[in-house]
Structures are given as structure tokens and as C-alpha cells.
Design a protein around this nucleic acid. Structure first.
Lengths: 251, 251
DNA sequence: TGTTGTGAACCATTTCACAGCC
DNA sequence: GGCTGTGAAATGGTTCACAACA
């Protein structure tokens, strides 16, 4: 969902399909759980079940990374955890700033899973002078005036926008101007960014509307007499990696 | 079970592609903004720009809904707003419950865009007895014990899960048992649900990891020639080839 | 034997390009 | 002349099915 032309045409063998990239975090999470239970190896079938995908897809996904499995046996859990982490760039530290410390921004700052995987909240930024200095999740909020300096001092390349929609584009422009090249946008707006900058968006309202669409169709289904089909609707939204079937996961 | 011969006859005529459905909310938002500015008509080019897609895609998307445009002129804004709203099921009221009123759940409850389009927060539910009765966003929190009753009394078919990961599956099971057929999951877990139940997930950590992947790639771009780590690397070595820092994540 | 890795078939989505209509 | 609506081509992603191999 990057905007416009992102990075490079040089379609090297190094090119991992976007759909695969989007599933790697899912595999990683399932693998981490296995690792914590000291499970040494896992088959594609088991891991796929834990990640909620089918095994053929998982094997194909892994084949883009290399041949990390052992035929007749499966995959070494620790080894895969490391390889996927490395592929995702999680073996390095990613300082992140959150801009807009309202309800949502504060919730994000407090979100634990944030820090756990190489991401570190380097700074919180808000436009309200009254918030300046107040600690949220143990981190003092800084004023928007210092945005550029904060970005540069901390070497931030990933920014999270949790401002109201009206402020989002302006904040985005400043982040990009200061050197941020990846943005996670929670504001309900389409952001416009130059080439080379990635934007991903998270939008509650859109997700609900998509659910409503399917919900409405389910309701109308009983009355639609012509279809003999339908023991199951095309559930499951093949948009990203889907949340669908199985299982597990502690903490 | 998902593995059985699932030869499902494709749902024809009424079948709007999932990718199109996922973009309708985007179009709707852009159209609503135009409507508020009293713009009477838009071309596919203009609307596409506002929604952040290209115009061919937009026209193709609209063609699945019907022929709502006028050649040589464009689309009537009000008319399209209505058609898309109807298609998405937003002309009816959708009572929603939020389960798990922590930082995130409270932020969601306070989120304005929620109520704006047919979605109404019918109840807030939390497992902590100490929260019971306390108002969040003007709505009193109710205890999990009453979950089933709340769902039924309010005719809720959409549930939002904002609990810790460990509680999510159990909450999900109870929601589904009580009649919920669409779930928006904020907990970092793969939920298992029966056929006919839709799950969409929103996962901050996954989004960041996807960004990190691209970010890493950008960084490696200038200094090309990344060495290929491949099958020649001995397995069972959770250590990188060279001095790479192997970060195996903690909880 | 059991399970991976992968061509090849299949399916979905995007993009192109232009005919059709205002 | 301008803009929509849509076949057809191109691209991207998923699933099948089986050979390779520890």
C-alpha cells in the first residue's frame, strides 16, 4: 500500500512478493510462541495452522527466503525465527516517533508489543503546549515545534501519525521533510507522499464498513432463493494475510 | 476441515470483488468530503486522486456496482454517496460492542468516526470488576459475565476485541456463541472461528514489521551488493554468518 | 517414510486502450 | 471533446500435485 512508485525496478531474485512479506510477521509470531515452549522443529502443516494459513502457501512463502527446511523433518524453530527476523529487519533497532498524543496516541505509546520487536518509542510529539513535558507511558511529550530536531537527533525513520485527520497531511509533510521514510497512519485521511516513502494505514472505520458489507450480505442470504451454494460464503478476506482458522498463542 | 474438496462455485452476478469492497469506504469518504463542499459532480480522475487510487481502477470498481456515471460528465456526488452507503450496508444501524476496555478499548470507545457512519457503540465490556459501572466515553462499562445477555438484548452482530492476546480467543468464542458473526480483532492473535463468521484484524506490530522490511531494503539500496545468505549456511545455527546481532525476541 | 521445495495450473486484480455515449 | 464503461492483456498471488530427498 505504498504510494506511487516505491523502490526499485531491478527485479532481482531478491524480490519477495508483497503478500509474502505481509505474512512473515504472522509466521514469526507463531514461531516465537513455539520457541517459548521450547519446541525444536515444526512442520509446514503445523506452523501453517498456528498462523492461520494453508501449508502450501507457507512453504511457497518460505521458498522465497531460501531453503530453510529439512525434507521429511520440518523447520528448525530457532533458525527460522532468526532468519525471518533478519529478513524483516528486526535484528536492528528502529526508533519510532508517535505524533498526536490523544486517546489513541497514548494507547499506542502504552502498547507493549511495540517495544518487544525491535521497535522503540523514541519520542512522543503533540501540538498541545499543555501536554509538553507530561509523561505518557513514561515518556515526556514534546512539542511539535521541535519535530524536526527530534527526528534528526534520534535517527528516526519510522513515524506514527495519530493526530486528527485535519492535521495529518501537515504532520506527514514535516516528518518526511525531516527524513522519515516510513509512515504508519491512523488518521482517517489519504496521505500524499513523495516517491520512496512508504505509507501504511490503519483505519477502524474502514474495517467496520467492510465487515458491515459482509454482514449485510449474510442477512440477505436467506432470502436469496436462487443460490444453491452457500454452506459457506466466501468468508475470509483475502486482502492481506487473513485471520481465519486456527489457534494458539499465549501472552 | 478446510482442506476438504472445497470446490465452491464462484458466486456470480452479485459478487463484488473483495478488493473492490475494501476500497468502497475510501471512495465514500472522499465523496462525503466533496458533498460537504457541495460539489455536485466529480470525474473518475478527480475522485481517484482524492481517494489515492488510479482512475481506471476506480471506474472498474464502480462498474461492479452498476452504471452510476454519465459519460462526458462524471459522477453525481450525492447519488454515489447513497449508492455506496447502501452497498456497504451503512443505511442501517449497526450496534457494536467493544470487549476489553484498557487503553486501546477506551481509545476506540472515544473514537468519533465510529459513531459517524451507522455504527453505534451499544456496550463496553471488561473482565475487571473494578471497572464495572465506570463510564468510558459516556458509556458505563459492563462486566464480562453479562456478555451473552448484552449481545442478545442489543441485537449485536459486530464485536470488537481489544483484550490482551491471552483472552481474545475465549472472548471470541463467547461472542460467536452469543450470535456475533463479524469480529474486528485488535489482539495480536490468530482467532479461530466457525464458517460464516468474518474476522478482520488490526495489528500494529505487523504493520510496523512490514514497514521495517521496506525500510531495511531502502537502507541497503545505496550500498547495494548485499551478500546472499543461502542454503550453504549450516542449519541449526541460530547465529548469523558474521557479526550480525541475533536478536531473539523476548516476551 | 514424511515432508520440503517448486513448476505449472488456476484464479484474482490491475492496467491498458478504446468504443460508446453525452 | 470529454469521460465513462468494459473487453482484453498483463501482472500478481494461490493452490495443486509431485519429484526430490533427508
Amino acid at each position: 500500500m505504498a504510494t506511487g512508485r516505491t523502490h526499485r525496478p531491478a527485479t532481482r531474485s531478491r524480490g519477495i512478493p508483497e503478500a509474502t512479506v505481509a505474512r512473515l510477521p504472522l509466521y514469526l509470531r507463531a514461531l516465537t510462541a513455539l520457541s517459548e515452549r521450547s519446541v525444536p522443529t515444526v512442520s509446514s502443516e503445523e506452523l501453517a495452522a498456528a498462523a492461520g494459513v494453508n501449508s502450501a502457501k507457507l512453504r511457497k512463502d518460505f521458498s522465497y527466503l531460501g531453503s530453510y527446511g529439512t525434507r521429511g523433518v520440518g523447520y528448525d524453530v530457532e533458525y527460522l525465527v532468526y532468519q525471518i527476523s533478519r529478513e524483516l529487519g528486526l535484528t536492528q533497532d528502529w526508533p519510532v516517533v508517535i505524533v498526536g498524543i490523544g486517546n489513541l496516541g497514548a494507547a499506542l505509546a502504552n502498547y507493549g508489543g511495540f517495544a518487544s520487536r525491535g521497535f522503540r518509542v523514541a519520542a512522543l510529539i503533540d501540538a498541545d503546549p499543555a501536554m509538553a513535558g507530561k509523561p505518557v507511558a513514561g515518556i515526556p511529550v514534546q512539542h511539535t515545534d521541535d519535530l524536526e530536531k527530534i527526528i534528526k537527533d534520534n535517527g528516526v525513520s519510522i513515524g506514527v501519525i495519530a493526530t486528527p485527520a485535519g492535521a495529518a497531511q501537515q504532520v506527514c509533510d514535516r516528518l518526511v521533510g525531516a527524513g522519515v521514510t516510513s509512515i504508519l497512519n491512523f488518521a482517517p485521511t489519504v496521505l500524499s507522499v513523495p516517491d520512496g516513502v512508504d505509507v501504511r494505514k490503519v483505519d477502524l472505520s474502514i474495517e467496520l464498513q467492510i465487515l458491515a458489507f459482509h454482514e449485510q450480505r449474510k442477512a440477505g442470504e436467506e432470502t436469496a432463493g436462487e443460490e444453491a451454494v452457500t454452506a459457506s460464503v466466501p468468508k475470509n478476506t483475502p486482502k492481506g494475510p487473513d485471520g481465519d482458522v486456527p489457534v494458539v498463542m499465549p501472552a
